[in-house]
Amino acid sequence: MVFGRSKSSSSAPAAASSAAAAACSELRAAYHECFNRWYAEKFAKGQWHKDDCVGEWHKYRACLEEHLEDKHLRQILLESETSYCVQLDPDSSSGQGAASAK
């Protein structure tokens, strides 16, 4: 697709993010399964008032925080903790509407 490199010094480029992939694959699969079902059956069909996958996301994210090696990707991952609520639309931040942790 496009050119690039990983920050890891692995000799096999294909294994660039394999540490995170290997360590978090089950938690990722659990999150994807939850997300895909929730999106298709609820969110996209008008039932967006509850986020069903908060628990799965937090477990998966904690794993990534521990195992993700690439500097750029870590930066984006860590941004999500600090800037969570600040970036949301101000008019939708009332109550628990904007929080994913509820």
Binding site: G4, C24, F43, W48, S80, S100
Partner: peptide, 25 residues
Amino acid sequence: ADVHTLQRRVDTAAGRLHAERSITV
């Protein structure tokens, strides 16, 4: 080669979803 979700936000009041994923190619 690999895909990870790095950020997700769900605005349950407005019905908005925002996500950032890494795609390693």
